[in-house]
């Protein structure tokens, strides 16, 4: 098991007591598997994914179990957290433009984790990243490494981010709305790319999205979250056919009336 989360509770102190963000989340991801995590914004899906890297608010209290490749993250042993973050799991965030440091060159940002975390010599790191750039379909890598983020398109940046995430050979990828900010064509390309790389490397993917249809089409299994709890867990192939939970049903039925894809396109082009 790559990622196993069991009965995870998370709360943060708030002005009127404490606020429960996660109320007993249980999910798992195995090698080579793509698992969807679907929910509206505020449902706790991002927090769940972040808990897998122990990226939780400073004063949050955690209970339950989170383990990545058998390493327990709830205890928060710094060495374990560091090992998981640097070697075992990698996160691909929603907005590539915000994730790359705007004042550094692409090459510097993309090699940062190799050079600064894994002590790979700079030239070697650049060579490896350039190879990965090739693999994710980025051309003219020499020029690219010297460019600044503001000089590239969103699609190119997301490929850069993916290449950088893969550079350390993680076994678990946490894709948090990784394609939501892209336009439909680019989204399809990036998804195909992720799928190919994942097959080659036997990576497990936790695919977080608000788009139930996309999750059903792209993933092997799908979890649906609402108000900090998992309300549905099914094979992707059956989730539209017989949704067990009324909420999933509502989500599924909402699709024809409010085509999510179209909305996505509008958001991306806006």
């Amino acid at each position: 098991m790559l990622l196993a989360i069991e009965d995870l509770h998370l709360s943060v102190p708030s002005p009127g007591g404490t606020r429960q963000i996660l109320r007993g989340v249980t999910l798992d991801v195995s090698e080579g598997e793509t698992v969807g995590l679907v929910g509206e914004s505020g449902s706790g899906k991002s927090t769940t994914a972040r808990a897998a890297l122990r990226l939780v608010p400073e004063r949050a209290s955690l209970s339950g179990a989170v383990s990545v490749c058998g390493h327990d993250l709830v205890a928060g042993d710094p060495a374990v957290v560091r090992k998981v973050r640097s070697e075992l799991a990698a996160m691909i965030f929603q907005e590539p433009r915000a994730v790359l440091n705007p004042v550094r060159r692409i090459g510097d940002s993309a090699t940062e984790r190799l050079v600064r975390v894994h002590d790979v010599p700079k030239a070697e790191a650049r060579r490896r990243v350039a190879e990965l750039f090739d693999e994710v379909g980025l051309a003219d890598t020499g020029r690219l490494l010297r460019a600044y983020p503001h000089q590239l398109s969103g699609g190119m940046l997301q490929r850069v981010v993916i290449a950088a995430a893969l550079s350390t050979g993680p076994r678990l990828l946490l894709a948090d709305e990784a394609t939501s900010a892209l336009d439909v064509t680019t989204q399809a390309e990036v998804l195909a790319l992720l799928r190919r790389l994942q097959r080659e490397r036997e990576t497990g993917v936790l695919f977080i999205t608000h788009d139930l249809q996309l999750a059903a089409a792209y993933c092997d299994r799908v979890y649906v979250m609402r108000d900090g709890a998992v309300v549905e867990h099914q094979k992707a192939s059956t989730i539209f056919v017989n949704p067990a939970d009324p909420y999933t049903k509502a989500l599924a039925e909402a699709v024809p009336r409010l085509p999510e894809r179209e909305q996505n396109t509008m958001e991306a082009s806006a």
């Binding site: 560091r82 998981v84 907005e95 915000a98 600064r116």
Partner: peptide
């Protein structure tokens, strides 16, 4: 509070 700082934390930068 910016995302690239969070991202750097996510890959274990000290």
């Amino acid at each position: 509070t910016l995302d690239h700082v969070e991202a750097a934390r996510s890959y274990g930068l000290g």
